[in-house]
Structure formats: structure tokens, C-alpha cells
Design a protein around this nucleic acid. Structure first.
Lengths: 233, 233
DNA sequence: ATGAATTGTGTTTAGTTGACACAATATTAC
DNA sequence: GTAATATTGTGTCAACTAAACACAATTCAT
């Protein structure tokens, strides 16, 4: 096979910023490394791009390996290419941004990788430029969730409007008006009333909704407005 | 120096999608290749990432080489990593999205690279996956320009509101109401009246404005709304 | 002077947003 | 069993914003 002559071949890594929501806090799935390099320190889940592997396939592989999940919400975040970002060897890393329902992950796989769900408010020091990746992913989440119905990717199959509101309050670190939030959400037509109630509640049981997936697919790229206009990025 | 053992090192390329606006049409700066591979065909301006070079520095280098411009609007678009995207050799390419004032570029440099400004409505067949890059860049432009005051990056230093409107109409392929557009723009406080008029006009001379750069910097990341609500991505 | 093309500004109506009130439901304490 | 407490569901209203539309002003050609 013909090859390009002059340029340098470089390692291409992938790192995954995996978000979950436990009903109260936004969390990231982080790894306490029991392998080299930087053994004993915290990092994102990552891996290298193989010779015969599409980039997106590699991301799905790495996410599956840690969570046991396929077909979850993934998008490219950004590629990080500072010369000295990895002290071992020049490595360019493509960051991937994933949202999962925290109840769906495979605990065995997570345990096997020595991974833990860590609250976004409590992220430890991370290796390399992973803190920058996390910060960018957080901004991306705040950005997109204000415009697109992204939040549902973090919710269980059936959920209540108050639960959803708690998610948005966690994302933006602010309290929202219950009544306006409910009106806005219901007006999107994205929610289907399951007829069931949340039996876990100690007071009035909230209605359980599920996502209207057809409408979600169709209208995902439209601009919506899930946050008050007073909110600024 | 220690190196990682197992993974394959891969070529990392950069490709630049460079937008300009000539007052009527949105255009891309494309290259008619007088070099291998794919000599004689059209492509984006690109290059390879060097061993001792930051990714963003490489993008700025490639953009400078073609346009003679520094400090222009650049953002990462996406990284393209299909196995067979480059038939010569496995290459991952980071796409960069650039907006320039079409009057500012260095014609010598453009000529030296055998590059031409091609209307977005008239893009020729492009090598590799460059058509996909262009399509994604176009979507990104449509997305961001609806929310952020991105359009100014494509305008000359002094411009009129009708000129700006023509740009938005070119981006979205739709006509806009002159009066509502003007009101919306002026209400942002981003425009400074230079006191001058556009002397090129054969009829009533429009006011020349310049960008309030301080406010532009400050408020760029706020959500604005430069397109009617009836507009959908 | 008059007409044609273009620019600048104003008005109106419909719809949306944000602030806030009250009623209904479920559990616990008494 | 009734009251108190916490939570959920629905409604109202005033202020604001957007979209549609009208008219006056400017400039040049005739």
C-alpha cells in the first residue's frame, strides 16, 4: 500500500465523559486507575483507536466495555491535541460525551474497571487534560440541554415531571419555578402519560410519564427553550 | 522516552472549511489540487499535524498559509475517523471551521495554492469525505448563526444592516422581514453607527455600522435569536 | 418635478413568559 | 378520624416579545 512519506504518525486516543443522574446529583463515571501510566490516580475511561476501526466504533466499544450498554447517547465533544498533554508520548485524544440512565449500567463491568460514579460537584484531580475535557463536556451539556430535549437520555424509562425538574436544576445549579417548568415541558408534546403514579412518594404521588420517542426523534434538532430566558450560559 | 507499546500510530490530518461572503453568496475557499494524491480534483485546504505542534497551532498555520490571515474565527468542527476515508493510508482528520472577511484574504497566497472561492450552491465533487465535512460545517454555521452573533465574522469592518440581512438570507436560504430584522439587530446593542453612509448605493444610502467588539466579546456566548421562531434547523 | 428603488421607523395584534395563588392528594402525628 | 405537613396539578394575570404590516424619507434617473 502506498503511504504518505513526510508526516509523523501519532497515537490517537479516545476519552469518554459519561454522565448519569441519580435523582439528586449529576454524576460522572470515573476510573481509579489500577494500571499504568498514572496508576492510582483518577481518569476518564479511555482507549486507543485501532488500525482497522472507525472512530465512532471505537467510542462505542470503549463505552460498552465500561457500562455494558450499547445504543446510548454519544456525541463527539472535541479533539484535544496539545503537544504535551500526555507525558508518555505524543497522543491526540478525541473526547466523547455520553449520557446514560444510571440504573441501566452493568455494575460488574464498572466494578471490573475500578470505576465509580462521582458527583460533578466533587470531581477529584484527574490525569492529563481530563479536567479540561470534563469542564468542556459540562458546558456542552448546559448548552445543549437548554435547547434540545437532551435531559431524557439521563432519565429512567418512566419518570415524573418533578424528577425531570430536579435534573435541570442539577445541570444549571439553580431552582426553577415548578409551574412554569411543567407547563413548558407538557407543551412540547414529548411526554406520554403512562396512567401510573410514582408509588415511592410519601406525599401526593406524581404522574409517571414516558418519552414520546417518535416525536423526540423528529423534533430533536428544533430549537426549544427548556430554560428561562433569564438564564445565561 | 517511554512509549505506549500496543496501539497503532496513525496519521492525523487537518482540513479547513473556510467560509466567506461576497455580498450575495456564501462561498467556500476550495483547492483545485495540482499535487498528489487526487491531483486535478477539488478538495478542502488541509495538512498534517506535526510531531511538535499543538492541534490548534497547526490549524492556524494551515489557514495562514492559504489566506495570509491570522486571528480569524476558527473552531473545531469534528474529527473524521472512518477507516477507509483516505484510500492512501489510514488518516484521522480534524475538521476546522473558519469564517473570514472575503476582502481580507491574500490573493497571492490563494493563487499560489490554486484555490478559488466557490459558491456554496455550486460545490464541485470533493475528494475523500470532504463533502461530508462541508455539509456538517454548513449545518454548524446555520446552527450557531441563529443563536450567536457569528455573522459579523463574515462582514467587512464597516457594513450596513441590509448587507447583514443578505448574509443571513444566504445562510438560511430564505427571505427575512427587513423591519423585524433591523429592529432585532439594533436591539442587541452590538452595532455602532459610524456616521457614514454606504456611497455605493444608487438609491437611499444605508448607514454604515461597525461591530461593538467589546460587547461582542462579552456577550458572544449568550443565547440570542437572530432568526424568526418559525425557522427550523 | 416625477417615478422607482431602497432605507429608516412606527403600529398593532397575537402569543409567550415569568410571577404568583389555590386546590387536590397522600402520609404522619395526634 | 382529624389536623398538619409536604408535595403535585392547574389556573390567572400583567409584562413582554415577535410577526405582520404601513408609511415616510432619501437618492438617482428621467
Amino acid at each position: 500500500m502506498t503511504r504518505y512519506n513526510h508526516p509523523t504518525r501519532i497515537l490517537v486516543a479516545l476519552d469518554c465523559i459519561i454522565f448519569g443522574f441519580d435523582g439528586e446529583f449529576l454524576k460522572l463515571l470515573l476510573i481509579k486507575r489500577n494500571f499504568e501510566p498514572e496508576k492510582g490516580k483518577w481518569s476518564l475511561m479511555g482507549g486507543f483507536l485501532n488500525e482497522e476501526e472507525d472512530l465512532e466504533v471505537a467510542a462505542a466499544r470503549i463505552l460498552y466495555e465500561l457500562t455494558g450498554l450499547r445504543d446510548i447517547y454519544v456525541e463527539q465533544l472535541q479533539t484535544f491535541g496539545k503537544v504535551d498533554r500526555d507525558p508518555v508520548e505524543r497522543t491526540v485524544s478525541v473526547g466523547f460525551f455520553a449520557l446514560i440512565n444510571i440504573d441501566d449500567h452493568d455494575p460488574e463491568a464498572v466494578k471490573a474497571h475500578n470505576a465509580y460514579w462521582i458527583s460533578l460537584n466533587d470531581i477529584p484531580e484527574l490525569i492529563f487534560d481530563h479536567a479540561k475535557m470534563v469542564e468542556l463536556a459540562r458546558e456542552r451539556l448546559r448548552y445543549k440541554a437548554a435547547l434540545h430535549p437532551l435531559g431524557f437520555e439521563l432519565m429512567p424509562e418512566k419518570f415524573t415531571i418533578p424528577q425531570l425538574q430536579k435534573l435541570y436544576e442539577a445541570i444549571y445549579g439553580m431552582t426553577l419555578d415548578r409551574r412554569n417548568f411543567s407547563r413548558k415541558l407538557l407543551s412540547t408534546g414529548l411526554l406520554i402519560d403512562t396512567g401510573e403514579k410514582n408509588e415511592n412518594s410519601a406525599t401526593k404521588k406524581a404522574t409517571l410519564y414516558k418519552l414520546n420517542r417518535e416525536k423526540y426523534q423528529d423534533k430533536f434538532h428544533e430549537f426549544w427553550n427548556f430554560m428561562p430566558d433569564t438564564f445565561l450560559i
